[in-house]
């Protein structure tokens, strides 16, 4: 069970939270102005990197606030959490989905499995 640092409540167990997927996807101010392709990308296309990912989390069984987090999807380590609307201080570490991160291998066979 992950331990997640809510910006308002501090470290809390994962069961109190809900994950809301990729962060920093802003709803267009005027959706009608988007063509079908752009709108479908806004709706459905998300990055799924092996490495550091910016995610939305909601402390639903706590203060109820949405916030953002940088999480390494390989190690499950949280680099930082920050309020909704803010930018992460370590944004340069976010893994681009096109460039897979180097993965730390626990054992030879774990990586192979």
């Amino acid at each position: 069970m992950l331990l997640i640092a809510c910006p308002h409540c501090g470290n809390r167990p994962e069961t109190e939270f809900r994950c809301g997927g990729q962060a920093h996807i802003v709803r267009p101010v005027d959706p009608a102005a988007l063509d079908d392709q752009s709108w479908s990308e806004h709706l459905f296309v998300r990055s799924n990197p092996r490495g550091v990912h910016a995610e939305r989390w909601c402390h639903s069984h706590g203060c109820g606030r949405w916030f953002n987090a940088l999480r390494d999807t390989v190690s499950d380590r949280f680099l930082e959490t920050y309020p909704a609307g803010a930018q992460p201080t370590r944004s340069s570490e976010i893994t681009s989905p096109e460039v897979p991160a180097t993965v730390t291998q626990s054992t030879v066979t774990q990586a192979r499995a």
């Binding site: 809301g20 709803r27 939305r56 909601c58 639903s60 109820g64 909704a84 609307g85």
Partner: peptide
Amino acid sequence: LAHMEDYLQTEWH
């Protein structure tokens, strides 16, 4: 309720 809160907190400050 969660759907509404999500929009209220993250889109419509």
